[in-house]
């Protein structure tokens, strides 16, 4: 499975990389900003996009909207990851086209399983 990860915090990127690459055996494209994601996404052709919400310059919502406009990325499922989960915000992220919202701190031991679960269930159910 190919995962495009957008996260401005380098340490979180490191933990995520171990969890997804080393433990789950996924292929990961790790980006430190929305801009970087936009430049790499098309070539990477991800199966799922994992986005942090609070980022400088382009936040997660803006990044997702921009990625979706790229050829071949319009239908790729997206999952948000946030430390700031208010109920109203969760609904807002789902409305923006995410299939799930993950809360930080997350459990790196089960992250791969969770993403796999999201992909295998019907899109409407979040």
């Amino acid at each position: 499975m190919r995962i495009l990860h957008v996260e401005d915090d380098e340490d979180i990127r490191a933990v995520t990389e171990i969890a997804l690459v080393q433990l789950s055996g996924f292929q990961l494209c790790s980006c430190d900003s929305g801009a970087m994601a936009l430049s790499l996404a098309q070539a990477f052709q991800p199966d799922l996009m994992l986005l942090d919400v609070m980022m400088p310059q382009m936040d997660g919502l803006q990044t997702l909207a921009a990625l979706r406009r790229l050829p071949g990325l319009a239908a790729v499922p997206a999952v948000f990851m946030t430390a700031r989960l208010q109920d109203a915000e969760k609904q807002q992220y789902l409305n923006a086209g995410a299939i799930a919202v993950l809360e930080k701190p997350f459990d790196p031991l089960t992250l791969g399983q969770q993403l796999q679960q999201y992909l295998s269930r019907p899109a409407a159910d979040s």
């Binding site: 340490d11 979180i12 933990v15 433990l23 609070m54 700031r84 930080k104 701190p105 790196p108």
Partner: peptide, 25 residues
């Protein structure tokens, strides 16, 4: 909201790292 974000971000790293290390994997 800000504090919770600012606390959770480093906590994500600490908790995630410890979890990975302690998993023995």
């Amino acid at each position: 909201a800000t504090v919770s974000h600012e606390l959770r971000t480093p906590l994500t790293v600490i908790k995630g790292a410890l979890s990975l290390v302690n998993s023995g994997q």
